[in-house]
Amino acid sequence: MQNTREIAFTLNGEEVSHRVPVRQHLADFLRHELGLTGTHIGCEQGVCGACTIRVNGRSARSCLMLAVQADGCVVETIEGISQSGEIADLQHEFIQRNAAQCAFCTPGMLMTAADLIGGKEPVSRDAIRDHISGNYCRCTGYHAIVDAIESTLNKRLASDKSNPHHG
């Protein structure tokens, strides 16, 4: 018999409650039970980063968290931060620079990069590479991804400067 538990949490701004098998990881729960297939699964051992989501404001591997552990948390997925417009400029820049080819890594890459573009300081290309070091991309060679993150950040910083009250 599967052990199950009732959980309630905030997902992309909405309250969700559901009964989940305790052995199910959060990525499978999001994909199979809720149909949120933007969160990808590559390895189920924390290595590839395709399943990266945000839990209580910080990025996390959804394959390394049980769905039961989401109880009481604030969870955001790529669907949430796309619809809210939070990373619209980053997504635009990814398209402009061909930073998404097969796009398997892209949701996780965007979730991880989202941490970096909210800051008030410039970030060096080396620091960008360190920050995305946990996300594998098998297509782009990373260069275009670093370009897209760097240019999004620079544009945001420039617009903050010319418009200090904005954001």
Partner: peptide, 11 residues
């Protein structure tokens, strides 16, 4: 800074 990657360090 050498211990794992950001999402793993968060947990």
């Amino acid at each position: 800074p050498h211990v794992a990657h950001v999402a793993i360090r968060n947990r």
